[in-house]
Write a protein that binds this DNA or RNA. Structure first.
Lengths: 346, 346
DNA sequence: GTGAAAGCGCTAACAA
DNA sequence: TTGTTAGCGCTTTCAC
């Protein structure tokens, strides 16, 4: 493989001149530029990025910290989609993407810190926000630029990009309340993840603002394992048969819930209304099509990436965050409360 | 950030000795080794991978060529899952993963070749097999190690890992035939992708081996856009109401097909049986739960990665490929042929 | 077993 | 506008 020296020789100039041509240095005669470019083409030269990274002390690479996860969590197309968003701007800004995967909290920490310390990446995108996150603390000590997709606990002292999960959920639940629902069950996920905390908070606020008392027994925490979701939903509905609606904090959880409802011999939306969250592309294909919230995953990814690149290059003095808007997608999984109050079938 | 020189100074040895310690060189006294390791820890030294890559002419990085894709194709958890498989062995063998994304054939080619020429990666994992693939040709010229996940056209002259799609599909269709089905519609995907070609071939072979004539009108090609899948399925069934089963080449396509069947007022599996492929985790959650083929995506990824690393380090003289086994997962979406022949409800 | 020196391929002062 | 030189942080002969 030819190096910059070979080009220099072949073009009859010095290596530094070749370097200047590569880097579009302004003070170079168009004649030399042309000559050099021809030589590069002729001998098939391509700059060695590794060498450049070494001298520039910059890799032009972004690390993507993927959540370590069970099989099922990974089945979530969320990650494919956010990768698209990230990839599109990284491509555009000439950044490469280093995928950082792991099989648990400890490994994630080790592997991520290693990538930073060994200077493999210029910055990191953390694709989740957790409570009590040791990774963020370590990263701050290393003074690595990073942005969190999600709302970190210490929201004032981090860069992050997120939806307004509290407000979005509040709106979603108020849609349900507007339909006449008052006893709304919740199937939520691991409360270690702040996204689920926030969605639960949005649920509570919606109830509060509408004078409905919050009943913690209506809230079930599941583990992301679909089979369990189905079972828990059935148990919930058996214990509280007066529930007229279920709010699942994620569409995938909603799928399991719907299955549970069906297994009880109940119908969605006639007997029970169901809403999900995230607008999984499959949600329009299931029966009934699921009412959910579109969180604009692609934009979450692209915005976070733009931010990170900005932070790397500008080193802003103040932390900031960005909110990506959401939209309720009303489909067929909700009906009015046709419970005991009016009981009129259609 | 401390360098190898700082460690050397602090430990009172030469940089080369430190390097030897880092690389577990055998001929080093355990005393010096200990001394050096202590110094490294004390001053917080971590080797700079970029510098090492430059001198070793090896990055220990694998490039992952993701299919450029529309939103919907990306919604496929296939990619999340294969990333898990790849990540797990890469992690284990101390390789990093560079994600290569693009928005079209041309960009994919450019971006991938750039990663190779600029020496960013030691090898590539190509996550799809297409007909007439310009990328593979270029890659061979560059003599980059790569392995294809899928069956490349020129199967004798490439490294690849795949399921036996022909045989697996044949088995699946024979399961349907065993249930009494003779007129089986097919909803397939872009025939540019060899996986779909192979599955169609498996379908044909199953018919042939069972003395059933192949009717090309029963085969519909769709584009991956779910809405269209639904529509095409309806059109197919309206044109050929005698079809008693539908074979969708991918579970995602099956979901669209089932929706179309429902919209026609028909029932799965009572009126029409449906089978899919890939065992998408959601397939157990839909109603009816979908009969499909588990292709062991994780293993596809891990096997391909092991192969690639082997090729990089061993430079084998002969091309080879590996087949990952599949399993039919029988669920609730198929019934016996209850069409005009016997017509007995249950 | 350890050190000195050269060099991986590139960029960036500093000169000219 | 261009060339010379030094050096990014590491590994690797070659001596000793």
């Amino acid at each position: 493989m030819p190096t910059i020296k070979d080009v220099a020789k072949s073009a009859g100039v010095s290596p530094s001149t070749v370097s200047r041509v590569i880097n579009n240095h302004p003070r170079i005669s168009s004649e030399t530029r042309k000559k050099v470019k021809e030589s590069m083409k002729r001998i098939g030269y391509h700059p060695n990025i590794i060498a450049r990274s070494l001298v520039k002390q910059k890799t032009n690479t972004l690390g993507l910290v993927m959540p370590y996860s069970t099989e099922e969590a990974f089945a979530d197309p969320f990650y494919s989609e956010i990768l698209r968003g990230i990839g599109s701007v990284a491509q555009d800004k000439e950044y490469s993407l280093l995928l950082i995967t792991s099989n648990g909290e400890q490994e994630e920490l080790e592997v991520t810190l290693k990538a930073v310390r060994s200077k493999r990446v210029d910055g990191l995108l953390i694709l989740r926000a957790k409570s009590n996150d040791a990774l963020l603390k370590e990263l701050k000590e290393l003074e690595t630029p990073f942005v969190v997709v999600g709302r970190p606990e210490d929201e004032k002292n981090n860069f992050w990009v997120n939806n307004d999960n509290i407000e979005s959920t509040k709106n979603l639940i108020e849609y349900l309340i507007g339909l006449g629902h008052k006893r709304i069950g919740v199937i939520t996920g691991d409360s270690e993840y702040i996204v689920y905390k926030d969605r639960l908070e949005g649920y509570r606020r919606a109830l509060y603002h509408n004078g409905i008392e919050y009943n913690p027994n209506y809230v079930i925490q599941t583990t992301g394992h679909h089979g369990l979701t189905t079972r828990y939903t059935k148990e919930l509905l058996e214990s509280y048969p007066k529930l007229t609606a279920i709010f699942a904090v994620d569409d995938l959880i909603a799928y399991g819930a719907i299955l549970g409802i069906k297994e009880l011999g109940l119908k969605v939306p006639d007997d029970i209304s169901v809403v999900g969250f995230n607008n999984n592309p499959l949600s329009q294909l299931i029966t009934p099509a699921l009412t959910t919230v579109d969180i604009n995953i692609f934009e979450l990814g692209s915005t976070a990436t733009k931010s990170l690149i900005n932070i790397i290059s500008e080193d802003p003095k103040e932390y900031y965050h960005e909110i990506v808007k959401t939209n309720i997608i009303v489909r067929d999984s909700c009906g009015g409360d046709k419970g005991e109050v009016d009981g009129n079938g259609e």
